[in-house]
Design a protein around this nucleic acid. Structure first.
Lengths: 172, 172
DNA sequence: CCCGACTTGTTCAAGTTTCAAGGAGACGCC
DNA sequence: GGCGTCTCCTTGAAACTTGAACAAGTCGGG
């Protein structure tokens, strides 16, 4: 989505994307949005929640005592505390998560996965894994899977660290 | 809708992700959300609109006579017509897009990029390209770029076609 | 002990996306 | 022409996200 490739452009030289880079970039955008939409739809249908909400339940399910401090969970999910606050409220209404006060810090709250939440995960996870497998892993060679992992780690690494107080969505 | 190769889902055997697959999948989720957030933030700051709105302007800018029918634009952007309708309303309020009636089909509407819209793109595109380059291409070897392109094309191909009238967000 | 500085989590308002209708025109067919 | 059925796009309400502002709690000096 970044064309006008032959423009001389003001303010001195500017490196546009080559045709090949542009092809790759568009394929990336296309595939990632398609996959995200696909999984969102799959989970909405089978679990009654979008992908990110599902991710919250998974994170809680993996945590010790199935609970996490709000801030910690927000960091894991890479969302703002505000957004998490709303999300947990919704999941609470569904009965899949419960809030608990933190004894050692009166400001703190734990989000705790309920039994019902565990149950939802249990009967939903297989279908989700299947969807991921069918959309991604079943279509890639072992070499491609390896390459994808490496590439994504590189990209994440470049964006992740708090370089010069740059992008820390969960602290905004 | 469910697989054709594995067993009937009822709690029977189920192929989970291997540790390695899980590593790759999490890296994928991590990197893609980080990148999406990064670009959204960059564009919101520099252009006053999220990534997808920017994409709409780009699509219009590339189209003949800088105009596209609503449905066509929705397909290009892979969003529903409803969503597009709201989005264009917003862009119209910004003065970057204008609506025009289709002469040959009175139901039809064209979304047309205005001069202001062109200007916004012109002064915004370089920064955006730089952001993409810094986050992605500058960090990958030529081989990785090629691999990424191939992988994304495979994934998109698997999700794209209207297999059994499955997932067509823009027709819902 | 008290103050300022920072953290934690929530809330509000504004903006965006989704979902379910619905109006209006096109199209085929009798 | 009259009908039923599509297609094109919009609408309004509900759900979700965002960013700023806020109350409450913690913490480290002085």
């Amino acid at each position: 989505m970044d064309s006008m490739n032959t423009a001389p452009d003001p303010a001195a030289e500017h490196r546009w994307l080559t045709d090949e880079e542009q092809r790759v970039w568009r394929a990336y955008l296309h595939a990632t949005t398609l996959l995200e939409d696909h999984l969102d739809r799959q989970l909405q249908r089978d679990a009654g929640m979008p992908h990110i909400y599902y991710g919250l339940l998974v994170s809680l399910g993996e945590a010790p005592r199935r609970r996490l401090r709000m801030t910690e969970l927000a960091m894991k999910a890479k969302i703002t505390r505000s957004r998490l606050s709303h999300a947990i409220a919704r999941l609470e209404k569904n009965g899949w998560v419960r809030r608990e006060d933190c004894p050692s810090d009166k400001r703190g709250q734990f989000a705790v996965l309920t039994e019902e939440g565990v149950a939802v995960l249990g009967r939903t996870a297989p279908g989700h894994v299947t969807a991921v497998r069918q959309a991604l892993f079943d279509r890639l060679s072992p070499g491609q899977q390896k390459a994808l992992g490496e590439i994504m780690e590189i990209v994440a690494e470049g964006l992740q660290p708090d370089e010069a107080g740059a992008d820390l969505p969960w602290l905004r």
